[in-house]
Each structure stands twice: as C-alpha cells, then as structure tokens.
Design a protein around this nucleic acid. Structure first.
Lengths: 105, 105
DNA sequence: TGGTTATTTGGTATTTTAACCAATAAATCC
DNA sequence: GGATTTATTGGTTAAAATACCAAATAACCA
C-alpha cells in the first residue's frame, strides 16, 4: 500500500473512529432530528457534562458536527447530514448478526 | 437513556468500531471487489500476517465478513455488501473537511 | 512420514480511549 | 461587581486496541 493510499484510509478511519462509540452514535441520531445543546444531550445520555462535551469535541474534530454558542448554551448540528444514512446499513449488519445467531441455535 | 436504547447503540457501536481502522477499511474495500485470501491482503497492506489475521477476526466477530478455508488458504468475503455504500458518505465528510480547511486559509 | 506453506493464537509492550472530578472560562442576571 | 449557569479543559486512573514476535495448527506435497 503506497503512502497516498495509506493516508486516504487513515483519513477515512479518523471519521469512522469518531463515530465508534455508543454515546456518539446516539448524539448523531439526535442531531439528525435537529440541533441540540450540550445540556440536552447530557440529560439524555446520563453521563457527566465533561464526558459529553468531550464526545462532542471528538465529533467536531472529525468534521462531523459544528457548534454555535448562543447565550450560555452551545448548540450542535450535523455538518454533513448524510451520515445518518449510515445507520440503515449498520442496522442491516446488526439484524443479519441476530439472524445468524438464531440460525445457529 | 433506557437500557434497551443503550444496548441498541452498543450493538451499533460494536460494528462501527470494527471498521474504525485504516487497514480494516482497506480490507472492506478490497472485499467489495471480490474474495481475498489472507496472504493477498497481507501483501497489499504490508503488515505482519498475524496483524492482518487479527484485523480479519475483528471484522468477522462483528459480522462484517465471513471466511472459508480452501486448501491452505482462507478466503474472506463481505457478509453484508451494503457496508461499501458507507464509503461514499465518509468520503463526503473527508471532502467537506478539506474544503473547510481551504476556506480557513 | 517429514517438510513446506498459510493462517491463527498467545504473549508482551506501547499507545489510545474513556470516565469522572476539579478547576477554569464565558455569558447572564441581580 | 458578585453570584449563577453552561460548557470546556486538565489531571488521573482504568480499560481497550495495536503491533510484532514466537509458537501452535492445519492442509498439502514429496
């Protein structure tokens, strides 16, 4: 694998890695429905504010979300709405796995 | 977030996490074109055979690929071809990031 | 059978992630 | 200005991921 190919896959992996956490997938799902402030997401997820804030910074760093401060709150939105389409495929893998498990019983 | 929701996102994250590595994304791309044996992938990636074998077992464990031994070789194929569609979206994020960088210059 | 090849598994060292608490920063309200 | 609220950042600790080497398996061939 040459250097260019390698860096292309590293760039992709960075984005996939940024999504590779239950809370971050949940956040993406929420933002697909509209903007959310950190406090809303924190309430829904039920973790420490600092933890949620760090998840958001991972998504932001990867270019998946953007933020906007209004008053005391910071609102996050999806930067590239297409990411929500990913879920239908991932769901397909999840379902296929469950079917395979059932078939093996 | 209730227990059921939590476990749904954990299941999704497991699959996304399995893809979250440059070599594993490369493998998925290769398998989208057809089956490949471990040795072919090892040659292309340029890592130790044991390393590639472990990447493949991560993908297999997540239900993304399946394997079939024929003779001395083990051939891997995609179990859910739709995963290749993920790339177009990830590429969109990559492009969008590059554009944002350029705009900031 | 013995040797060769392809792959997996076990072990280890290093790096990366993740969670929480505490402290800081920024905006608002009195 | 001082208190309050929202969010981020720094620090620490524990868990997970990654790479390589070495050893074990499995299938083939002479």
């Amino acid at each position: 694998m040459d250097a260019k190919t390698h860096s292309r896959y590293r760039a992709r992996a960075k984005i996939v890695k940024a999504m590779a956490h239950p809370s971050r997938l949940f956040i993406i799902d929420q933002l697909a429905e509209g903007e959310r402030c950190v406090c809303e997401l924190t309430d829904m997820i039920g973790a420490d504010t600092s933890t949620v804030s760090k998840h958001l910074s991972v998504l932001k760093e990867a270019g998946i979300v953007k933020d906007e401060k209004r008053g005391l709150q910071v609102f996050y939105t999806l930067r590239t709405p297409c990411v929500t389409r990913l879920f239908s495929c991932i769901e397909a893998v999840v379902k296929s796995n469950i079917e395979a498990q059932l078939a093996a019983m």
